[in-house]
């Protein structure tokens, strides 16, 4: 320690210690593997399998094989359900007739300007709005997470849509993440303390959440009861 003159010395020593501990960790993993009953010299296995014919290899496989048990048949309940479905299904010609006429105006992508004009966004910059939402989410999720619907729910349907829209950017831009609890069929928002760069494309996924008027109304009524 008396030899440490400048902070860089300390950093270098710490870095060296870190690398040494990593080597020891890898060596320990290697030793554990060699000591396990599954350890076999790869070359030995390669030589053995090259020497064996297909018949012997297949016999070996069968002797160590535990095939899963599966049932591939329809249940009486499923059959009953499908018969009901068939009975109630209108002929295809009728179904095609019933389809709504496509609207004459073509759908187009919205822009920031359009959102500002329609009043969905205020004059504040989008970034400011995002920061405001981020702060609100952090404040509201004291236990680490906040129920998605509680966060986006507002007094009007229009405002709820706007909050959901901004919230989607919070997640996409790495300010928060979504967590789904399949048991409760509930979605939670978890804010990050620091902005995180969006994860690699292959690891990210989309989670569509429907916010139709009926759902909003039900949620709103539920909140008022609470």
């Amino acid at each position: 320690m008396p030899d440490w003159k400048i902070p860089e010395d300390l950093i270098l020593d710490a870095e060296t210690l870190n690398q040494i501990s990593r080597i020891i960790d890898l060596q320990s993993e290697w030793l554990r593997n060699r000591a396990s009953s599954m350890y076999v010299d790869p070359l030995m296995i390669e030589l053995k399998v090259r020497a064996l014919d297909s018949r012997s290899l297949s016999d070996i496989f069968i002797e160590s094989w535990h095939p899963p048990m599966e049932m591939e048949r329809l249940t009486p309940e499923k059959l009953k359900e499908s018969i009901e479905y068939w009975k109630q299904l209108p002929p295809i010609e009728e179904r095609l007739k019933g389809l709504p006429v496509p609207p004459s105006a073509e759908l187009e992508l919205t822009s920031m300007d359009a959102l500002l004009r329609s009043g969905l966004l205020s004059e504040k910059t989008f970034d400011e709005v995002l920061q405001m939402f981020w702060k609100e989410l952090k404040d509201r999720s004291k236990v680490g997470k906040e129920r998605y619907w509680s966060f986006i729910l507002a007094d009007t349907y229009k405002e709820t849509i706007l909050r959901a829209y901004i919230t989607s950017f919070l997640v996409s831009y790495g300010y928060a993440t979504l967590e789904m609890e399949p048991m409760k069929e509930d979605v939670f928002l978890i804010p990050f303390e620091e902005e995180r760069r969006p994860v690699e494309k292959k690891r990210s996924f989309s989670m569509p959440i429907s916010i139709d008027y009926e759902t909003w109304k039900t949620m709103r009524e539920g909140k008022q009861i609470e």
């Binding site: 030995m44 296995i45 399998v49 070996i60 160590s64 094989w65």
Partner: peptide
């Protein structure tokens, strides 16, 4: 799930 890996290796050896 299906393969007893330890047994497989032992049998090959």
């Amino acid at each position: 799930i299906e393969i007893d890996r330890e047994r497989l290796l032992k049998l090959i050896l």
